[in-house]
């Protein structure tokens, strides 16, 4: 039993810097929670840790082995890296807790880095609604392009480039989407309506590629036959499952995010209507910085 657990927890391809990064972020967050001691941190903390742990699990445990040798598990891995994990992390608005927990030099350093003109400029470009949507969908299409996918699954370097690019883009996209501040509070805080348009714009291309894969009569990705599968499963079933994962839950995330944004818009409106009430509940404008 213990040996089995150890086997599952052992990274298939350890990236020590990545493990260290996750550990540092988790440690800062826990320290931040302990320092702030606020009851309203509890729910966001759960979202944050579920998001962080899910991203870690699909990259640095034995799950990664199955993701390398089964197409549908690879798709589930990307669903977590690009959609679910970053979504939960962005939803938890972790900046304030992280800043409270990080050593002073680190939080100052990060803030200083974010304020550098090239970094801030690049961030504004990446978070431009059109670029953000194009990157979000473009990366899915790029890594699923059969010849690109083939090399990515064969080359250790490209494999990690693929996974990490999905994770970073997922964080950027959902950070942009779920920003709770009042529109216009920062240059990258766009109006709720515009954000909903972007959310719905990224849905059809994801449905299209998911449906294409799920309904393809032949093998689209032969690299899984080339490398061997982790356990015997019909290649076409593997592909159909992978297509469905790309198609349905990925697109559903846009619907979930839309509901959250509508609620956020409602909270903004209500606090505008009664200016005597302090607008603290949902917006917390002071607590969020661009990273």
């Amino acid at each position: 039993m213990a040996a089995e657990i150890a086997r599952w927890l052992t990274p298939w391809e350890p990236l020590y810097w990545l493990i260290a990064l996750f550990a540092i972020v988790a440690a800062c967050y826990v320290r931040g929670l302990a320092r702030r001691r606020r009851a309203r941190d509890v729910l966001p903390a759960i979202a944050f840790f579920v998001g962080l742990a899910s991203m870690y699990t699909v990259m640095q445990t034995h799950v990664d082995y199955y993701a390398q040798y089964m197409f549908f598990i690879h798709r589930a891995q990307h669903l977590i890296l690009h959609h679910l994990g970053p979504f939960l992390i962005a939803l938890s608005m972790p900046t304030a807790v992280l800043a409270a927990g990080a050593p002073l030099w680190l939080s100052r350093g990060m803030r200083g880095l974010g304020a550098l003109p090239p970094v801030a400029g690049l961030y504004r470009v990446l978070q431009h609604p059109v670029i953000s949507a194009a990157l979000f969908v473009g990366l899915i299409y790029f890594w699923l392009w059969p010849s690109v996918h083939f090399t990515a699954m064969l080359s250790a370097r490209d494999y990690w480039l693929m996974n990490l690019s999905m994770a970073v883009d997922g964080l950027l996209f959902w950070w942009f989407m779920l920003d709770p501040r009042r529109p216009g509070a920062t240059p990258t805080t766009y109006s709720i309506g515009l954000r909903i348009i972007v959310l719905w714009a990224v849905m059809p291309p994801q449905i299209a590629i998911g449906a294409y894969i799920a309904l393809a009569p032949d093998t689209v990705y032969d690299v899984y036959a080339v490398c061997g599968r982790a356990f015997p499963i019909s290649p076409i079933v593997d592909q159909q499952l992978g297509g469905l994962i790309t198609w349905i839950p990925a697109a559903m995330m846009s619907v979930v995010a839309t509901l959250i944004l509508l609620r956020l818009g409602f909270v903004h409106d209500r606090s505008t209507a009664s200016p005597t009430e302090p607008a603290v509940t949902a917006s917390r404008p002071d607590e969020r910085q661009t990273v």
Partner: peptide
């Protein structure tokens, strides 16, 4: 060897 070439095998 199989991991080096990013391939795998399994038994039914």
């Amino acid at each position: 060897l199989s991991k080096r070439y990013r391939v795998t095998y399994g038994y039914g």
